[in-house]
């Protein structure tokens, strides 16, 4: 069983076999547009397109997509709301609403609101772009692509090992927790705390041992400081890449137009 739903979707969706180059390009373009324009309108268009591609091409429904999106969105909202609300001077222009608590004036100005909405737009848009990549592309394909782009080996090796051993660690922790649970290790609050502490320290020791045995096993296969693995050449279609760039450029033009002439 896969403990990470995003990982499971990444391996099970219909865009799994699509070239990573194209998916990364699509996601990166979406993020760039949202961050570049910081406009709710552009973000709305981008999120709509991302949702449509996920639904129609990857087979990931709106409900599933939102299931992954709501938690980080909550973080964004809790960050953005305090940004919109600020301490005001009584003379501040453009106050939309304010409350007076003693000598303090707390309120929302149109400038502050615009700023908060811009940040909301760019972060929510980038989030959906990144999530698109996470839901359609397994880590393997992403690290492969990074190798092709000559990202430093150390960085990729760390990524690969962390990814691989996250699952090993979780499986070990799960087994330990079950073993504690069946011996009533979590039956009271006090026992809970004690069991968690034991689990954590044991897990640390286990990880150390795991690292030693991994090093031994790698040495037996001739490890000498670099985790070299084969990477296949990236297949991608010029038509699709041009299509993706075309869509992004169109959104970009539309974004510039709305900003310059106020079209919507």
């Amino acid at each position: 069983m896969n403990p990470f739903p995003i990982d499971a979707v990444a391996y099970g969706n219909r865009l799994r076999s699509a070239p990573a180059t194209e998916k990364i390009l699509f996601a990166a373009g979406a993020v760039a547009l949202c961050v570049g324009f910081r406009s709710l309108a552009v973000t709305a268009v981008v999120v709509t397109i991302v949702t449509a591609v996920l639904r129609l091409r990857a087979g990931i429904g709106l409900r599933d997509f939102w299931g992954f999106l709501w938690l980080p969105s909550g973080f964004i909202l809790t960050g953005v709301v305090p940004m919109a609300i600020e301490f005001l001077d009584p003379q501040t222009p453009g106050v939309l609403a304010a409350v007076h608590i003693g000598s303090w004036h707390l309120g929302v100005t149109s400038r502050g609101l615009t700023q908060a909405l811009a940040i909301l737009a760019s972060s929510f848009g980038s989030l959906s772009g990144t999530l698109f990549l996470a839901l359609t592309t397994p880590i393997v394909d992403i690290t492969d692509q990074l190798r092709r782009w000559c990202v430093p080996v150390l960085f990729i090796d760390m990524m690969m090992l962390i990814y691989r051993f996250t699952f090993v660690l979780l499986a070990t922790a799960g087994a330990m927790k079950t073993a504690q649970e069946v011996r009533l290790g979590y039956s009271t609050n006090r026992l809970w705390l004690r069991s968690v502490a034991m689990l954590a320290s044991n897990l640390y020791l286990r990880s150390q041992m795991r690292a030693v045995s991994l090093f031994t096993a790698l040495s037996c296969r001739g490890y000498s400081g670099e985790l070299r693995v084969l990477v296949d050449r990236a297949p991608w279609s010029a038509t699709r890449v041009l299509g993706i760039i075309g869509v992004h450029v169109l959104i970009g033009i539309w974004g510039v137009a709305t900003r310059t002439w106020g079209w919507v």
Partner: peptide
């Protein structure tokens, strides 16, 4: 689990011969 380290099976198998 102490031997397999790479993110995919094929990559893991390629490790030894590349060395």
């Amino acid at each position: 689990d102490s031997q397999l380290f790479a993110s995919s099976v094929r990559q893991d198998i390629s490790f030894g011969p590349l060395n």
